[in-house]
Simulated scan of single mutants.
Amino acid sequence: MNEIQRTAAFDPWTESVPLLSKKVLDRTLKRMEGRGLVVRHEEPAVFPRSVTYSLSPAAHDLLAAGSPLVEWAEKNQDLIAPVRRRNAERRRRRQPTERQHDGQGDEG
């Protein structure tokens, strides 16, 4: 990998992404590491322990392959958004309400 690699310690990520807990971030990074998408770098000599993650060569390849799909989605948001809204509305109508689900229904 070259010097320009994406690295992130936990605190900047959890501060910049609302509602992202350290536990969720840790679990996600471990899964990504297990799948070969990130490389974990630990410097135990530093206190507190310093851990960074960088994208693996496979992740860079995946990003390059996925870029055309992302570009297409961005260019076609006007087509995609109404379909997503319509599908979300259908799902909402099919799901029972909480009152129906707990047996109280509308009978009162």
Rank of each mutant, 00 (worst) to 15 (best):
Met1His: 10
Met1Ile: 10
Met1Tyr: 10
Asn2Val: 12
Gln5Ala: 13
Arg6Thr: 12
Arg6Phe: 15
Ala9Gly: 15
Trp13Ser: 09
Thr14Asn: 04
Ser16Gln: 13
Val17Tyr: 05
Ser21Ile: 10
Ser21Leu: 03
Lys22Pro: 00
Val24His: 08
Leu25Gly: 04
Leu25Arg: 02
Arg27Val: 07
Arg27Lys: 12
Leu29Ile: 04
Lys30Arg: 09
Lys30Val: 13
Met32Gln: 04
Met32Lys: 01
Glu33Leu: 03
Glu33Asn: 02
Arg35Val: 00
Leu37His: 03
Leu37Thr: 05
Leu37Tyr: 06
Val39Leu: 09
Arg40Met: 11
His41Ala: 09
His41Asn: 15
Glu42Met: 03
Pro44Glu: 05
Phe47Glu: 14
Pro48Gly: 01
Pro48Thr: 03
Pro48Val: 00
Pro48Tyr: 03
Arg49Tyr: 01
Ser50His: 13
Val51Ala: 03
Tyr53Cys: 08
Ser54Ala: 15
Ser54Gly: 09
Leu55Gly: 04
Ser56His: 08
Pro57Tyr: 00
Ala59Val: 00
Leu62Thr: 02
Gly66Ile: 03
Ser67Leu: 15
Glu71Asp: 15
Ala73Gly: 04
Ala73Trp: 04
Glu74Phe: 06
Lys75Gly: 11
Asn76Lys: 09
Asn76Thr: 01
Asp78Val: 12
Leu79Pro: 02
Ile80Ser: 08
Ile80Met: 06
Ile80Thr: 04
Ala81Arg: 14
Arg84Asp: 09
Arg84Ile: 10
Arg85Ile: 10
Asn87Met: 13
Asn87Ser: 14
Glu89Thr: 08
Arg90Gln: 13
Arg93Gln: 14
Arg94Leu: 15
Thr97Ser: 14
Gln100Met: 15
His101Met: 13
His101Glu: 15
Asp102His: 14
Asp102Cys: 12
Gly103Asn: 01
Gly105His: 11
Asp106Tyr: 12
Glu107Trp: 10
Gly108Ser: 13
